[in-house]
């Protein structure tokens, strides 16, 4: 009996183990905490309290610090990535939700929903260095790879504002579907993808011409179209596939970038918000707000391999290579 079991156990282990170590940091919106998940062993290691209503989360370029937007504390907490101890704060303004860093890791961009401004914060001095007026309820932020262009989406204005960062000037305003919540540049930098939570689709914008060149819609059999509310977007490192979290549709859409068509819908936990890739590009993690877990997706197999319980109402996720 025993001898026959061992090979099976080995196979199962081999199939599940990622090639490289990685740690996911998950914000729990109602848990007021961050959960640290070991993506090698696929287990939650610990959960620590961080403050009120944590949502957006990002790692510093050197992966030594984590920045966590604390909406109800009106601040961004800086945590030590190892100890999860708070080591400082960033001046975020009221109710910060999302944060993005410049490619050189020196600046953080934060949208301030209440005063329709995009704020840039110098991470060394931890001071706000500039503010740019944008649309009503600014939300998503994306930065081009060269750091020259910053894009902000405004939820009520339903636009993506392209900002020439050197000139600190809005150079284009592109109308997209209702409540644009998240923006992401394709790896080659030629396109910006914007998800519209209420509009229910993704607008593909030519990053140079500032024009919508395609709109991607989603259809899941048996689901009403109102349930499809796209939020987080991520691209595979080779740029061939895009992944879109569909909110209360409880699925992550896999999109073939070349044809701009959804090719698969992966069933994850309920109310999927944000996504992150492991540094080796093998796994995708989704945060599932209502089921209090994250789903780990094997990208090559296009399969959900594990759900890992985290804190209450997980929202944001960042992954380090440590």
């Amino acid at each position: 009996m025993q001898t026959s079991l061992i090979p099976y156990a080995l196979i199962a282990l081999l199939a599940a183990a990622p090639a490289e170590a990685a740690t996911a940091y998950v914000t729990n919106e109602k848990g007021n905490s961050v959960t640290l998940v070991d993506l090698e062993k696929l287990v939650a290691v610990k959960t620590v309290e961080v403050g009120q209503r944590p949502r957006g989360i990002v790692l510093s370029k050197d992966e030594r610090l984590i920045y966590v937007c604390l909406g109800d504390d009106d601040t961004i907490a800086i945590l030590d990535a190892k100890t999860l101890q708070r080591v400082g704060e960033l001046p975020s303004g009221v109710d910060p939700e999302q944060i993005r860093l410049s490619p050189d890791g020196k600046l953080a961009f934060v949208a301030n929903e209440n005063d329709a401004m995009l704020t840039a914060i110098d991470l060394e001095t931890r001071r706000a260095i500039s503010e740019i007026p944008v649309g009503v309820e600014p939300e998503g932020v994306a930065v081009s790879k060269d750091g020259e262009t910053v894009v902000n989406t405004s939820e009520t204005t339903s636009m993506a504002h392209f900002i020439d960062w050197r000139a600190k000037k809005v150079v284009a305003n592109v109308l997209v579907g209702a409540r644009p919540r998240y923006a992401e540049f394709a790896p080659d930098g030629k396109e910006l993808w914007v998800s519209s939570e209420v509009g229910g689709g993704v607008s593909v914008i030519d990053a140079e011409k500032h024009e919508v060149v395609a709109k991607i819609g989603f259809e899941v059999p048996g689901l009403a179209k109102e349930q499809i509310q796209p939020v987080g977007i991520r691209f595979s490192p080779d740029g061939k596939f895009a992944f879109v979290a569909l909110g209360p549709a409880n699925r992550v859409a896999v999109i073939d970038v070349a044809s701009r068509k959804p090719i698969k819908y992966l069933l994850v936990g309920q109310r999927v918000w944000q996504l992150a890739l492991t540094p080796d590009g093998k796994y995708l993690v989704s945060t599932n707000g209502v089921t209090n877990d994250i789903s780990v997706i094997d990208i090559a197999a296009e399969k959900v391999m594990k759900s890992i319980p985290v804190g209450s109402f997980p929202w944001g996720v960042a992954i380090s290579s440590q």
């Binding site: 649309g135 009520t156 204005t157 809005v170």
Partner: peptide, 8 residues
């Protein structure tokens, strides 16, 4: 809200 959008 309409006018903020209208600016653009």
């Amino acid at each position: 809200d309409n006018n903020t959008t209208g600016r653009f």
